[in-house]
């Protein structure tokens, strides 16, 4: 009951911190797509490179987020951004690489060899093959990777409150330090709701991006 009252009284703050949260995850994931998808495609050309890149990306995910934030403080302090928005975005960007690179890599390398042969035999250049066949077919699996990254990082971003990045994590960190269950619950519930909402929104986007009749063919590898 108290929590609901707190919630209603602080709607403006909740909205502000939710938007901060979205700003961190949204910007970071967009950048992660711009880097991860090309990397995922590029490593399909070389198995050795693929193994190394996926290994490194996997190691990054095993670094606890709080440690990663700690590591970045001295480095980013050099440019005056040791704490705050920038390290939060970089952390999310790094954590997103594994699901996005791996799903892109898996999707592109699993394109039916017969389709690749047909595309070659009909006279497509490697670039045309990529743009007209391989990427369109990979989109559902790539999007599955993006969804995993988004949901995972909405949670991680909550911790970024400790390095002053703002967002819904502020409710949680204050809730803990002030032993205030109202703030704690508000923060936790909002983080969960945001994750669920983002997942559904991306699922919808994924359907829109997939040609009507090829949607169910993509089995998405997931690590969630």
């Amino acid at each position: 009951m108290e929590t609901i009252v707190f919630f209603m009284d602080n709607l403006d703050v909740i909205l502000e911190r939710t938007l901060q949260h979205i700003a961190i995850v949204g910007v970071a994931i967009s950048l992660a797509i711009l880097t991860g998808v090309p990397i995922g495609i590029a490593i399909t050309l070389n198995r050795k490179a693929a193994n190394i890149v996926l290994y490194v990306a996997a190691i990054i995910v095993t670094i606890p987020s709080i440690a990663l934030f700690g590591l970045m403080i001295p480095i980013l302090s050099l440019i005056g951004h040791g704490v705050g928005y920038l390290p939060a975005v970089i952390a999310v960007l790094l954590y997103s690489q594994l699901p996005i690179i791996r799903n892109t890599y898996t999707a592109i390398s699993n394109v039916d060899p017969a389709l690749r042969e047909a595309a070659r035999g009909l006279g497509m250049t490697p670039m045309q093959r990529l743009m007209k066949v391989e990427i369109p077919l990979a989109i559902p699996v790539v999007m599955a990777g993006v969804r995993i990254a988004v949901v995972m990082n909405i949670g991680i971003t909550a911790i970024a409150a400790y390095i002053g990045a703002g967002g819904l994590g502020v409710f949680i960190s204050r809730g803990i330090s002030q032993t205030d269950p109202r703030q704690l619950i508000t923060g936790a519930v909002m983080v969960s709701l945001l994750a669920i909402a983002a997942d559904y929104a991306l699922m919808w986007a994924q359907r829109r991006l997939t040609p009507a009749s090829s949607s169910s063919t993509s089995a998405s590898p997931s690590n969630a």
Binding site: A118, R120, G121
Partner: peptide, 21 residues
Amino acid sequence: PVELRRSIGYVIQQIGLFPNM
């Protein structure tokens, strides 16, 4: 080779229709 293939029809056993088109 790309021009050559465009000037020759090609049919394979696995058919290879592009599912996204």
